[in-house]
Simulated assay, not measured.
Amino acid sequence: MTPARTLSAVLLSAGLALSTLPAAQADLPNRATVTDKVGDAPRVIDLKASTYSITRERATFSTTVRELTSRTFVAFEIWPLTSAWDRIAIRRVDGRTVARVYFVDNDLEDSDKPVATRTRCPGLQVSWRPRVDRVSAVVPASCLRASQPAARPFELHTFSRLGTRHDAMPKRTLD
């Protein structure tokens, strides 16, 4: 076999080997957009659309509210279809945006209710933009305790609430 043919065979073999890697090993940016019926909740919590994106490095969330005000509360959740999930809760307190990341343990052996534990999250980025009625968050993968980006599938959720009233986007599953 000539050197050129040998090199071609090696490159072809390498290409075939890479094409058969499991999906979890490939760089898989997963994206989804969901919409919700407008008018089914009070204006300040009425969710219109949400966008999700997950890569190995980060999870990115964005939602549009019908009328974003300082009374609006928004939370994004990633459920890896196990007994725990991650939640990013965002609200306004005294004129500033407050965001927290939680690990929610739903292993009901020790308690009859899910237990939320706050997770320290350096690098968490949030945006509260009332002019365009949008709330967004970028969460580093290192902050996600239940939802490692290489594990699939995920259910992604967005919800808002005002007192006992709430609104939720239809869940979206990415795998």
Rank of each mutant, 00 (worst) to 15 (best):
L11T: 02
L12F: 06
S13N: 01
S19G: 06
L21R: 11
A24L: 05
A24G: 09
A24Q: 01
A24Y: 02
Q25R: 05
P29T: 06
N30K: 11
A32M: 13
T33G: 02
T33K: 10
V34K: 14
V34L: 13
T35S: 14
T35H: 12
T35E: 14
D36C: 10
K37H: 13
V38I: 14
V38Y: 02
G39S: 04
P42N: 10
V44E: 15
I45C: 07
L47V: 08
K48Y: 06
K48T: 13
R56S: 14
E57H: 13
A59P: 02
T63G: 03
L68V: 10
T69P: 11
S70W: 05
S70K: 11
F76K: 07
F76G: 01
I78C: 04
L81C: 00
L81K: 08
T82W: 01
T82D: 06
S83V: 08
A84T: 04
W85I: 01
D86T: 06
D86S: 09
R87T: 05
R87K: 14
I90L: 07
R91L: 14
V93I: 15
D94C: 03
D94A: 14
D94P: 00
G95C: 01
R96P: 04
R100A: 01
V101K: 03
V101Q: 03
Y102L: 08
F103W: 00
V104Q: 00
D107I: 11
D107S: 15
L108A: 11
D110C: 11
D110R: 14
S111H: 09
D112R: 13
P114Y: 10
V115M: 10
R120N: 08
L124T: 08
L124C: 10
L124V: 11
W128M: 11
W128N: 12
R129L: 07
R134G: 07
S136G: 09
V138I: 14
A141I: 06
C143I: 03
L144R: 02
R145Q: 08
R145N: 06
A146P: 02
Q148A: 02
P149V: 02
A151E: 04
